[in-house]
């Protein structure tokens, strides 16, 4: 992974505000939603996101990056994932997340453990987001798929019930109602 400060185009002593500004400028440029979802922007956005997060989390990429890079630090080993697994097994999710936060490489396995730990502390969104990342990076892994399914299932059950109310009617009437809804009192129709 490249030097995150280089990715964002900021100096090492940039303020938090400068870093955020730089990040959002790049997000505007490369976010797939504003670039027809092409592959290049998706990859670029991932790089930018990782850089931003590692600076904010002060991971070995971040503050200690130069040192870690120079000393030939090779990133997470299986030893660290064992520790993470143990913490998760006893419900110490925050400790697990702390260890994960200090790891350099974001592999599929990293995202899997992160998803499980986040699920443990009720971070629904991070959990499903990272579970999806794990599956995307390693589609052949059944365990990753199982966790993703588990997390998404409750949403699907709700969605089914939601769909029994039928689809929303034609836009025409909805638009009128909506314009009125945003004004004070819309019961004139």
């Amino acid at each position: 992974m490249r030097d995150p400060y280089e990715v964002l185009g900021v100096s090492r002593d940039a303020s938090d505000e400068e870093i955020s500004k730089a990040y959002r400028k790049l997000a505007k440029k490369y976010h797939p939603d504003l670039n027809n979802g092409d592959d290049y922007s998706t990859k670029k956005m991932s790089e930018i996101n990782n850089a931003y997060e590692s600076i904010k989390n002060g991971t070995p990429f971040g503050g200690g990056y130069q040192q870690a890079y120079n000393s030939g630090y090779t990133g997470s080993g299986s030893f660290n994932f064992e520790t993470v697994r143990k913490y998760i097994a006893v419900g110490q999710y925050i400790q697990a997340l702390n260890i994960l936060g200090n790891m350099r490489d974001r592999t599929a396995e990293w995202y899997y453990f992160s998803a499980v730990a986040h699920a443990g502390i009720g971070n629904r969104i991070m959990a499903v987001n990272h579970a999806q990342m794990a599956v995307n990076m390693d589609p052949s892994n059944d365990e990753y798929k199982r966790v993703l399914d588990l997390l998404q299932n409750r949403g699907r059950t709700y969605q089914q019930r939601s769909q029994t109310f039928g689809s929303f009617e034609d836009i025409g009437t909805m638009c009128v109602r909506f314009a009125l809804l945003n004004m004070f009192c819309c019961w004139c129709c």
Binding site: R24, A27, H31, P32, D33, T42, N49, Y52, E53, R124, I125, V128, N129, Q132, L151, Q152, R154, G155, R156, T157, Y158, Q159, S162
Partner: peptide, 17 residues
């Protein structure tokens, strides 16, 4: 901003669940 937008609907469903 760091969540792919094709996940938004799923996330909203999970939260309403």
């Amino acid at each position: 901003i760091t969540v792919p937008s094709n996940m938004f609907k799923d996330i909203l469903n999970i939260l309403m669940a």
